[in-house]
Design a protein around this nucleic acid. Structure first.
Length: 154
DNA sequence: GCCAACGTTGGC
DNA sequence: GCCAACGTTGGC
């Protein structure tokens, strides 16, 4: 079992939106970055843990957790001309982009902000700190545990 | 295969 | 809205 951090802009799709989704589950679509795609396709498996991260908002940080409930399958939006995720270069028989399904698990008692993460020595090796822009990131078990500890009520 | 130009992400 | 960091594109 592996751990991940998934980024989302709350104005686009927040943890709350996930909670309100049918069966508290959604497809994680619209990944259009090869590094993130490769992780989704090859490494993200059913049962893996996901840190749900809010970017580009007032309170940037980890806000909750989710669980992977379906591993990689072709992202349907790449073939949808109406979608902003449409990709004319993707071939039906050999789709370029994949998505997974994730299910809401928990909301953290305290948001673990990017500021806190950057200030914490135990989290200094996180991809989030070293390579800010990647939207799907691996997280170690130690990092996962530490973040959940920071999120507990004080 | 190099690299300049351009586009996107995301914190602030 | 700015801008740094990084990714992608396309001419050569």
């Amino acid at each position: 079992m592996n751990y991940w951090l998934f980024k989302s802009e709350p104005s686009d799709f927040s943890l709350d939106d996930l909670k309100k989704s049918p069966n508290k589950t959604t497809l994680w679509e619209g990944i259009r970055n090869y590094q993130a795609r490769n992780l989704l396709r090859d490494k993200v498996k059913v049962g893996d843990g996901v840190l749900f991260y809010h970017s580009q908002c007032k309170q940037v940080g980890v806000v909750g957790t989710a669980e992977v409930v379906k591993s990689a399958y072709p992202d349907p939006f790449q073939f949808d001309k109406e979608s902003k995720y449409f990709d004319a270069k993707s071939d039906q028989s050999n789709p370029r982009w994949v998505c997974v399904d994730i299910k809401y698990e928990s909301e953290l008692a305290n948001i673990v902000t990017l500021k806190e993460i950057k200030a914490d020595k135990k989290l200094s090796e996180m991809v989030l700190v070293k390579q800010g822009r990647l939207s799907i990131q691996p997280v170690t078990k130690a990092e996962w545990n530490h973040i959940l500890k920071l999120a507990k009520p004080k």
